[in-house]
Amino acid sequence: MSVNKEIKKVTTHTLLRMKASGENISMITAYDFSFARLFDAAGIDVVLVGDSASNVMAGHETTVPITLEQMIYHAQCVVRGISRALVAVDMPFGSYQSNSDIALASAIRIMKESGAHTIKLEGGEEVVDSIRRIVSAGIPVMGHLGLTPQSIYKFGTYAVRAKEELEAEKLKRDAQLLQEAGCYAIVLEKIPASLAKEVSESLSIPTIGIGAGSHCNGQVLVMHDMLGINNEFKPRFLRQYLNLQEQVTGAVKQYIGDIKSGSFPSESESY
């Protein structure tokens, strides 16, 4: 008789326990059912339905244009492919910045309509009220500090953040505020490794880095960058594990050639 081993789902509590035990957290973005299922089967801890869908799925220059409805659609697709991983969804630009009422309504829509487990939003002190409201409604919140891509038009550049003392001190204060407001984890993007180390050690909640060095409690990459689907984006922090752009292009060229030459389909591939 076969015994079905119960799949132990990753929860926000799991991530807190991982930080306490010194186990690093693995996180990757996904935007559809097929890749979500592959990543989940591989054993990833967290799947982030990133607003980077605006860039890699819709072809926009920034993350700003993607809508709440589009994020919910991508999240629905991802959730259907997940058995074990924690699914986090980015709240898109405009869905939480204006006031905490709108932020709470947006978070509720994501959770109810997608079936995801948690939301993520960018910012520090300025979004603390919204975080408190969302957490008080029973929705787990992951924070995001450092380079916050939704604010790209304010920054004017994707350069490393918090290199200057004033911005570094604000980031440290913001990290404490997010923890106090109820965040269970914080993404630290493109900040000096020494600052990320200091912040990670000062918090009881885990930090997940992207371009923030090795002292965070976990790491996240955009799947299109890590798998080499997009070879135009090659920042220092990116480790590319495949070159799918080259492999897919080669495979499609071969497919085209086989059709043109008449070798596909063969007799054995016909009915």
Rank of each mutant, 00 (worst) to 15 (best):
E6A: 12
T11C: 06
H13L: 12
T14H: 05
L15D: 03
L15F: 08
L16F: 05
K19G: 10
S21C: 12
E23Q: 12
S26C: 12
I28T: 06
D32N: 09
S34R: 08
A41L: 09
A42C: 09
A42K: 07
I44F: 06
G50L: 00
S52C: 10
A53L: 03
S54P: 02
N55A: 04
V56E: 02
A58Q: 10
E61W: 06
T63C: 04
T63A: 04
I66Y: 09
T67L: 09
M71Q: 05
I72E: 01
Y73R: 03
Q76H: 02
C77I: 00
V78N: 01
I82V: 15
A85W: 03
S95C: 08
S95M: 05
Y96T: 04
S98F: 15
S100F: 04
L104S: 04
A105K: 14
I108M: 10
G115C: 05
G115Q: 09
A116E: 08
K120S: 01
L121M: 15
G123R: 08
E125V: 09
V128L: 13
D129M: 13
S130D: 05
R132V: 11
I134Y: 07
I134P: 02
V135M: 06
V135Y: 08
M142C: 06
M142E: 02
T148E: 01
P149A: 14
S151A: 11
F155A: 04
T157R: 14
V160N: 10
V160S: 09
K163F: 05
E164G: 09
L166W: 04
E167K: 14
K170L: 11
A175R: 10
E180M: 13
A181V: 15
G182E: 13
Y184E: 01
V187A: 01
I191R: 07
A193I: 06
S194F: 07
A196P: 00
K197H: 09
S200E: 06
S202G: 04
L203Q: 08
G209P: 06
I210V: 12
A212Q: 11
A212E: 14
N217V: 08
V222N: 03
M223N: 11
D225S: 04
D225W: 00
D225K: 00
F237P: 07
V248W: 00
Y255C: 14
I256F: 12
D258Q: 15
K260G: 02
S261A: 11
S261P: 03
S268H: 12
Y271I: 01
